[in-house]
Design a protein around this nucleic acid. Structure first.
Lengths: 155, 155
DNA sequence: TATTGTTATACTCTATAACTATA
DNA sequence: TATAGTTATAGAGTATAACAATA
């Protein structure tokens, strides 16, 4: 109960630092954290508006507005579905794909630099613990969709 | 270069999960993440508006509005400074102190539960690595002020 | 009737620029 | 003149409720 609170503190702080880093990189390229999340989600999906709202954890109306603004910047497109004429699919434009790539790879460099002080073994151990936590959390709570981190080739 | 990217992914995901957890707890009690940060900062400070803006990393006008809304809810107070009559100090009300306590302790419970799957040794190792990273980061970049995590009695 | 998505409305959060009062 | 803080304005992000079109 006593040292767990210190762990809480550490986890909270690191999460603020990581998020702040991502937000900083995003704003360097003129987009917000949420817009970055949107683009990142779309890297490997062409969801309907409803699906997108679920993935983002937002109301469909909020999602609609988010897509409006991204579309106005030429980052995404609405593609009408021909199966269900009420429905649309949202997808990245080339410009959007390029932008999310630039932002997330700069971010990945930042995080890699942040982990510099650790030894290779330290990094391996850290990722092991974090993965374990994430896996359990994902099992208990909702799906853990990739949000922002760099896309990996292999895997 | 290859497994570091996986570490990036893991860190990004855990930071989203942790922030999401905090935001969820905050919204349960009717306040936003930023309001929670504001209250958390004020737990052990009575900063001027300028100092507060610096701590939050926001413009003074944004900070002023933030304090307006918190004040309207009875969570903080503006105390005029008698040294410099242009200046004010911002402080928690009892209600604000109570609220931030409730939110952060619920959050701490969430994080503790999240770390359940790890052994005691695992948690200790995790906090060790994270602390190391945070310490180096703090040295290189700005000050690391406590933002949201639970206040500890001893320490 | 139910579902998909948009629109109207209202509020929070944020920054820039202009302002007031004090120093 | 410079500094502390507020206000005016504009835009992003969010939710709720009402709506249109399609199923």
């Amino acid at each position: 109960m006593t040292d767990e609170l210190d762990t809480v503190e550490a986890l909270a702080q690191i999460s603020f630092v990581v998020q702040g880093t991502l937000e900083h990189r995003a704003s360097e390229h003129g987009i917000s954290l949420v817009q970055t999340r949107l683009l990142a989600i779309l890297r490997d999906r062409k969801p309907t508006m409803n699906e997108l709202a679920l993935l983002l954890g937002l109301d469909k109306s909020s999602t609609s507005g988010l897509v409006d603004r991204a579309q106005r910047r030429g980052l995404v497109r609405r593609v009408p579905s021909q199966l269900d004429r009420r429905s649309v699919r949202v997808r990245l434009t080339e410009q959007g794909r390029l932008l999310v790539q630039v932002v997330t790879s700069a971010f990945a460099d930042d995080v890699a630099a942040m982990l510099e002080p650790l030894s290779a073994e330290g990094r391996a151990a850290l990722i092991g613990y974090v993965s374990e936590v994430l896996q359990a959390h994902t099992a208990t709570h909702g799906v853990q969709f990739r949000t922002t981190a760099t896309r990996q080739s292999g895997r």
